[in-house]
Simulated assay, not measured.
Amino acid sequence: MILDSEQETKRKLKIEPIAGSYNSYSVDEKDKRDWSGNIYLGCVAAILAIAFFS
């Protein structure tokens, strides 16, 4: 697939040297947490609690 334009994504990377090695690094990507599932679960729990106590 050929793209007409490149999209630049800004990612937060955590780069740490690996202990006991020469010129080797560990690269971890910091992801944003997706709260939509937790908010949905909280709303369902609130509705069930209201239905149970009323």
Rank of each mutant, 00 (worst) to 15 (best):
E6V: 10
N23E: 09
I15M: 12
D4V: 13
I47W: 01
I39A: 13
L41S: 11
F52D: 07
C43E: 04
F52L: 12
P17F: 08
I47E: 02
A45S: 12
R33C: 00
D34L: 04
V44Y: 05
K32T: 13
P17S: 10
L48C: 11
G20I: 03
M1R: 04
S21A: 11
W35R: 04
R33F: 07
K12E: 15
N38M: 04
I39H: 03
I50W: 09
G42C: 05
I18F: 01
L3Y: 15
E16V: 12
V44C: 10
E6F: 05
E16R: 12
K10M: 12
V27H: 02
S21I: 01
F53W: 05
A19F: 10
Q7F: 15
I2W: 13
Y40R: 03
S24R: 04
Y40S: 07
A45T: 14
E8I: 14
E6W: 03
D28V: 04
F52M: 09
I18V: 13
G37C: 00
R11Y: 08
K10P: 02
S36K: 08
F52K: 03
K30A: 07
L41N: 09
S36L: 07
A19V: 12
G37M: 01
E29D: 04
L41R: 08
Y40E: 06
W35G: 03
D34T: 06
W35C: 01
I2C: 10
Y25L: 06
A45L: 13
V44N: 01
D4H: 14
I50V: 13
A19S: 13
E8P: 02
E6Y: 05
L48K: 00
I39Y: 06
E8W: 02
Y25C: 04
G42E: 06
A49M: 08
S26M: 11
K14L: 15
I39N: 03
L41C: 05
L41G: 03
W35Y: 10
Q7D: 15
P17L: 09
I47P: 01
S24G: 00
D34R: 04
A51L: 10
E29L: 06
F53A: 06
K32N: 10
V27F: 04
K12P: 00
D4A: 13
E16S: 14
K12G: 02
P17R: 12
G20V: 07
L48E: 02
A51C: 06
D31M: 06
L48M: 10
L41D: 11
I18S: 02
G20M: 05
L3E: 15
L13I: 10
R33T: 09
Y25A: 05
P17I: 06
G20F: 02
V44W: 04
D4W: 14
D31G: 03
D28G: 01
R11G: 02
S26L: 14
M1W: 09
I18M: 05
A49L: 14
L13W: 13
G37R: 05
S5R: 11
E6C: 11
N23H: 06
A19N: 11
S26P: 00
